[in-house]
């Protein structure tokens, strides 16, 4: 009601708070965490438009507008970084995205729940291996003289290869190890979606004489399609932010040209070389493009499949 006097609503508030104050207190720590550690850095984003000097502070540093952005777009390595980043994430998406879906459909067809549980436990395992350990393992089994893979190649009559410094091997290593590590874990969401498939529909199909391939194709897949689309939208929203923690571990000087992505370049320039303003601008550029891609894919999906994030 618009006519309500503020005194009354203040009294109402007092009464409300007298009973419910603990709930507001519950929210306080989380709110403080978000303000101090998430919103405060956003305030620092302004240095992307300044020539930031630590001793001058945020406000004392000279305002330079879009200078850093223009410098980045015209930098000699701009197109290389953009190409490396996009090609790695697009290929990871193309190769990696279908695997958990197929795996979930396969797991869903296991009738014994005991076997199913054991298979799930095993396929989740790589997800729990730390990134450092996994890259270490890759280095060990691919090593030229001592690695298991090279011993296998020799046994099969091929020549030894030093995969770790071969530019052409870098992307396959990154993508395959990513699938190995995350496919099992990624299947959980589709398995969850598959539990909501209409049982009556499956029975009806059974009576109509459908075999299991047909049931998967005509019932299971359409049922989980909304989930698939949502996951696809969310993945495409981070096309420009590939897992740089892994890239950083896999990189060496021999494959720098094909492996350097925007975020690792940012780490090198920003943290190691202290070019704060320039790299902040690059980071902002990155997240703006990500946001645009997310919005676009969401819009397209909304039109084509009537599924969207919001």
């Amino acid at each position: 009601m618009m006519m309500k006097s503020p005194v009354l609503s203040a009294r109402k508030w007092k009464k409300h708070l007298k009973q419910f104050w603990p709930l507001y207190l519950f929210l306080l720590p989380a709110l403080l965490d978000v303000i101090i550690f998430r919103y405060a850095p956003m305030y620092g984003l302004q240095i992307a438009f300044r020539d930031f000097k630590i001793r001058k502070g945020f406000w004392g540093s000279e305002w330079v507008g879009l200078e850093h952005f223009i410098k980045f777009v015209n930098a000699p390595n701009f197109w290389q970084l953009l190409r490396n980043t996009l090609s790695l994430s697009v290929k990871s998406l193309l190769w990696g995205f279908p695997v958990p879906v197929i795996l979930a459909l396969m797991l869903n067809e296991i009738r014994s729940s005991k076997i199913k549980r054991v298979v799930q436990t095993i396929t989740y395992a790589p997800h729990f291996l730390s990134m450092v350990a996994m890259v270490g393992l890759i280095n060990l089994v691919l090593a030229r003289e001592t690695g298991l893979i090279n011993h296998l190649l020799v046994a099969l009559g091929f020549e030894r290869k030093n995969f770790l410094i071969m530019p052409s091997a870098y992307q396959p290593i990154y993508i395959l190890s990513g699938i190995w590590q995350e496919a099992g874990w990624g299947s959980i969401i589709y398995l969850a979606a598959l539990t909501s498939v209409d049982l009556q529909m499956l029975e009806a199909a059974q009576i109509d004489g459908a075999n299991r391939f047909q049931k998967i194709w005509y019932i299971d897949i359409p049922s989980i399609l909304p989930t698939i689309v949502i996951m696809l939208i969310m993945r495409s929203g981070s096309l420009l932010s590939v897992g740089y923690e892994k890239v950083l571990l896999l990189q060496n000087d021999m494959i720098r040209d094909v492996s350097e992505v925007i975020s690792t370049y940012n780490y090198r320039m920003g943290i190691l070389q202290g070019k704060y303003s320039y790299t902040t601008a690059i980071g902002l550029f990155n997240s703006v493009i990500n946001g645009i891609i997310l919005l676009a894919v969401n819009k397209i999906s909304n039109i084509v499949t009537e599924t969207s994030l919001w």
Binding site: V34, Y39, G44, L45, Y276, T280, L284, N286, G291
Partner: peptide
């Protein structure tokens, strides 16, 4: 909002 947007590596570091 913080899930979709953040300050990025360097502003977070400076923070």
């Amino acid at each position: 909002f913080t899930m979709y947007f953040g300050g990025g590596m360097i502003p977070t570091y400076l923070n």
